[in-house]
């Protein structure tokens, strides 16, 4: 559990921490955690400080919107769009997913367009049973396999089932795990329970990277999004992610800005760089550039790579490709000339 334990020491910053070792058990009563036995009792002292600054709704929405008005043209636009492709988690999460569809998606992720100067996507994101198909198709390409787990998308299964889900996905070859938090617990104020669950999932992930989906559309307020971000990062998330894509509203610029600011403050406090993944509802090249501007202005160039920023998307890629072709040829493109996933 080193991943979540190392933050407390080097923080002279604004995130006060309790001692790391005692926090483990918490709400998992009689649970799977080794530290469960000593967790009873004065629980409040056993968790890090989850407090987060209040979010000014008007200001955050204004700032997020204002950063969307920046005009990127010509070479800057082309560079931005190529960067966006290299950050994309090409996603298919439908009940009708088949190995054929995943194979097609993998081909597209490795080679989005016939032109050689278009980079490959960062990862392919699928359900656990399709991980082996993707793993085989992507072998040697450098494109990662991400799998959703923990009873995606609701997350409403017993913890043991969720952990088994994660271990299974990792065993099948997933490089990255996208988990969902228990929004019910978050809304009920059981922050310790949310924290413990992420800690447990992180442990089950082993080497695999963990992305924590907050499902911001169900959290209701920016304050709660900010707090959930804080909890996830303290618990050891490698990435925090806005949405499953199954709930509306999904990713919005404003909610992404709130999370990016949480990442920034966490970095100042701990020196750890946490990644960000907006997902759901990002369909156009223009939106993608808007998000890149948000990252650049909030976190700087260090975050502008696929290790620390991802787009969760399915239809976005074609629009970005169409825009790149438009810049190259000067003619607006038509959807019929680009492969459907």
């Amino acid at each position: 559990m080193a991943a979540h334990g190392n933050g407390s020491g080097n923080g002279a910053g604004p995130v006060p921490r309790a001692e790391g070792g005692a926090r483990a058990g918490g709400a998992l009563e009689g649970g799977a955690m080794a530290g469960g036995a000593m967790a009873r009792g004065a629980r409040s002292g056993q968790y890090p400080d989850f407090s987060a600054p209040a979010v000014d709704r008007v200001m955050v929405e204004e700032r997020a919107a204002a950063l969307g008005k920046r005009s990127l043209k010509k070479e800057a636009k082309v560079a931005g769009l190529k960067l966006a492709i290299s950050m994309m988690d090409l996603t298919t999460l439908e009940g009708r997913d088949s190995s054929g569809k995943v194979l097609q998606l993998c081909q597209k992720a490795m080679r989005p367009h016939e032109r050689a100067d278009v980079p490959a996507c960062a990862a392919v994101c699928v359900y656990p049973t399709l991980v082996p198909v993707a793993k085989k198709a992507l072998a040697g390409s450098g494109v990662k396999v991400a799998s959703v787990a923990t009873a995606f998308p609701s997350g409403l299964s017993p913890l043991s089932v969720k952990l088994a889900d994660v271990r299974e996905a990792v065993a099948l070859g997933a490089d990255e795990i996208d988990m969902v938090i228990d929004r019910g617990a978050m809304l009920a104020g059981k922050h310790g329970s949310v924290f413990d669950e992420i800690v447990a999932v992180k442990e089950a992930c082993g080497e695999a990277h963990l992305k924590v989906i907050l499902e911001t559309g169900e959290l209701g307020t920016y304050d709660r999004v900010r707090k959930a971000s804080q909890i996830a990062m303290l618990a050891g998330a490698d990435f925090i992610k806005t949405s499953t894509g199954k709930v509306t509203p999904a990713a919005t610029p404003a909610v992404t800005l709130v999370m990016l600011e949480a990442i920034r403050d966490f970095y100042y406090a701990t020196g750890k760089r946490i990644g960000m993944k907006p997902a759901g509802g990002i369909r156009t090249a223009k939106q993608a550039l808007h998000y890149l501007v948000l990252v650049k202005e909030t976190l700087g160039d260090a975050w502008l790579n696929a290790d620390l920023f991802r787009f969760g998307a399915s239809t976005l890629l074609n629009d970005v490709l169409m825009q790149l072709e438009k810049e190259r040829t000067g003619a607006y493109q038509g959807g019929d000339y680009f492969s459907k996933d």
Partner: peptide
Amino acid sequence: PHLARHVE
């Protein structure tokens, strides 16, 4: 002219 070049 832009509409004439538009592939769609």
